[in-house]
């Protein structure tokens, strides 16, 4: 049994040996770091892609609501009472009241540069818009509950129409799209991660295969299995660490350069914000992926050369 001092000296020697051979074989070093960089980039992209799909799903869901239009003669106090009742439904996320006047102002503001529409409005002579409530639920399936509530006979006198039934197919399609998007993202992630790990594992396996004679000599001169295995594991850690650092700076500068320019694809999207909001998670995932794959692959690949 080694004493703690001896174990510390062995550890020091293993790290020193790994560090030296790491820099002595420049070509192999570059290849190993590059492969590991690909794996870490894949893991990082998957993480960001998942966040992007969540962002997209949230953005799409924000655009979904149902509107309730009230009859010309309805009193504002009745509408506001109904608004309070709707807000009490647990499935409802928010309700917004749009009075006749506000609807008119909103329309004229939006179409002020369209003379035909403006002229038509003047021609009508009165405010043709109806007061309405815009209701947002938490999920698509909950809109049915809201629609059922509004279909009660008590509200027949004040409600002109509920546009849920016209919008239902679109709402359903949007929600099935976002859910498919997530499933596809997860599947894609799993496949890509699997391929990346296989490539990294085989690269390390090849490196250890090339060192098989060296391992044989080390065994012949009396090195213990841990003394032989140690430098390979330490090299896995060093490769993983350097690859993670490079990947981090690549993604950092990449997202900084792209930044808000990605907003043209999805309104409100900012690549740099996405990166910064996942800052610590990304560092953790990148280091864990790099070092983890480096160490585990080395452990598995060297096993067969250390059998007595």
């Amino acid at each position: 049994m080694s004493s703690p001092t001896n174990m510390y000296i062995d550890f020091q020697r293993v790290v020193k040996s790994a560090w030296k051979s790491f820099f002595r074989d420049g070509g192999m070093l570059a290849a190993d770091i590059f492969i590991m960089l690909l794996v870490i980039s894949a893991a990082t992209s998957l993480l960001l892609l998942n966040d992007l799909s969540n962002f997209l799903a949230a953005e799409l869901q924000k655009k979904v609501d149902i509107s309730v239009y009230f009859k010309e003669a309805s009193l504002e106090s009745d509408i506001l009472t109904l608004k309070e009742d709707i807000e009490k439904i647990p499935e409802v996320k928010g309700v917004e009241y749009l009075s006749k006047e506000k609807a008119f102002d909103y329309f004229t503001e939006k179409h002020s540069d369209n003379p035909i529409l403006m002229e038509a409005l003047i021609e009508v002579g009165v405010n043709p818009f109806l007061a309405s409530l815009n209701i947002q639920a938490f999920t698509a399936s909950q809109y049915q509950a809201v629609a059922d509530f509004l279909a009660k006979p008590d509200f027949k006198n004040i409600i002109e129409k509920v546009d849920y039934y016209q919008r239902k197919p679109i709402i359903d399609r949007i929600f099935s799209l976002t859910s498919n998007l997530k499933t596809a993202g997860i599947l894609f992630s799993i496949i890509l991660a699997f391929i990346s790990i296989l490539v990294a594992f085989n690269t390390i396996r090849l490196a250890i295969y090339n060192a098989r004679e060296e391992i044989k000599i080390q065994r012949l001169v009396g090195a213990s299995n841990w003394f032989i295995r140690g430098p390979f594991l330490a090299q896995g850690v060093i490769t993983g660490f350097f690859a993670a650092v490079i990947a981090f700076f690549l993604f950092f500068s990449g997202s900084f350069l792209v930044g808000a320019k990605a907003g043209f694809l999805f309104t409100g999207f900012n690549a740099f914000n996405l990166f910064m909001s996942n800052f610590w998670l990304l560092i953790f995932v990148q280091l864990l992926t790099g070092i983890g794959i480096g160490v585990i692959s080395s452990l598995i690949a060297i096993r067969k050369y250390l059998k007595a």
């Binding site: 080694s2 001896n6 000296i9 062995d10 020697r13 080390q218 001169v221 009396g222 090195a223 003394f227």
Partner: peptide
């Protein structure tokens, strides 16, 4: 030196 390292020499 490798052999000496293996046997735990200082």
């Amino acid at each position: 030196a490798y052999i000496m390292e293996i046997i735990g020499a200082s």
